[in-house]
Amino acid sequence: MDSNALASTRPYLIRALYEWCTDNAFTPFIAVHADESVRVPNEYIKDGEIVLNISFDATSALKLGNDYIEFKGRFGGVARDILIPVNRVLAIYARENGQGMAFPLVQNLDEDAEEPTTSSGGISSTVVADHGDAGPAPRPPPGSRPTLTRVK
């Protein structure tokens, strides 16, 4: 089979890491490149990105599909429908320890990334209270952007 005809591994890896987070009682967060193709509350987008809590407690009707991630989430107490093309997910990680995986940004929605980057901790050094709402996760303090380490 031609490698161009293969399905992207990104949605499968997202689902696997979501399951790993929930099996270990961690809170799965996704970082999303917020452009015109995503449906999220614009008032929570910072620097073209939004970080969302996608835990069972924070979402309703969560669907981790091959093309889109869909769910209903509460932002400031207001329920919103969220739709994210899988190609716009930049990372999925556990809030509690930062372990997860980052993906390169795909410029063209019809193509996918070549290879993900894995992390062994270090995505987020800030631990915060979870209010059970799918609203944006807190961002690290300025100058301390999350970092990912490639593990082979």
Results as ranks from 00 to 15, higher is better:
D2A: 04
D2K: 01
S3Q: 10
N4V: 02
A5D: 10
L6C: 10
L6W: 14
A7L: 09
S8P: 00
S8D: 09
T9A: 14
R10W: 09
R10H: 03
P11V: 07
L13T: 12
L13E: 15
D23G: 10
N24I: 06
A25H: 04
T27V: 10
T27D: 02
P28Y: 00
A31Y: 13
A31P: 01
V32E: 10
H33Y: 15
H33M: 14
A34C: 11
S37M: 06
V38E: 06
V38F: 11
R39Q: 14
V40G: 03
V40D: 04
V40Q: 09
I45T: 08
I45P: 01
K46S: 10
K46M: 11
D47A: 15
G48S: 13
E49I: 14
E49T: 15
I50T: 09
I50D: 06
V51H: 11
L52Y: 13
N53Q: 02
N53I: 00
I54T: 03
D57C: 05
A61P: 00
K63V: 14
K63Y: 13
G65V: 02
N66L: 08
D67R: 09
Y68K: 00
F71Q: 02
F71R: 00
F71Y: 13
K72W: 12
G73A: 15
G73K: 02
G73N: 01
F75I: 03
G76N: 05
V78L: 15
A79Y: 13
A79L: 15
R80Y: 09
R80A: 15
R80Q: 15
D81Y: 12
D81I: 10
D81W: 13
D81L: 12
I82C: 06
I82E: 05
I82Q: 04
L83R: 07
V86W: 07
N87H: 12
N87E: 12
R88T: 07
V89T: 09
L90G: 07
I92P: 02
A94E: 02
A94I: 03
R95F: 08
R95E: 03
R95C: 00
N97R: 00
Q99A: 08
M101F: 12
M101H: 08
A102E: 12
A102Q: 06
P104Q: 12
L105E: 15
V106L: 07
Q107R: 11
Q107H: 11
Q107D: 13
N108D: 15
N108E: 12
L109C: 01
L109I: 13
D110V: 08
E111L: 07
D112Y: 13
E114F: 15
P116E: 02
P116A: 08
T117Q: 11
S119H: 03
S119M: 07
S119R: 02
S120K: 01
G121L: 04
G122N: 01
G122A: 01
I123N: 06
I123C: 07
S124F: 09
T126V: 06
T126W: 06
T126M: 05
T126K: 01
V127Y: 10
V127K: 02
V127C: 03
V128D: 04
V128M: 04
V128C: 01
A129K: 01
D130L: 05
H131L: 04
D133M: 08
D133S: 09
A134V: 02
G135K: 03
P136Q: 10
P136M: 10
P136F: 14
R139K: 07
P140C: 08
P141N: 08
G143Q: 08
R145S: 10
R145V: 08
R145E: 12
T147H: 02
L148P: 00
L148E: 08
R150I: 08
V151A: 04
V151Q: 03
K152I: 11
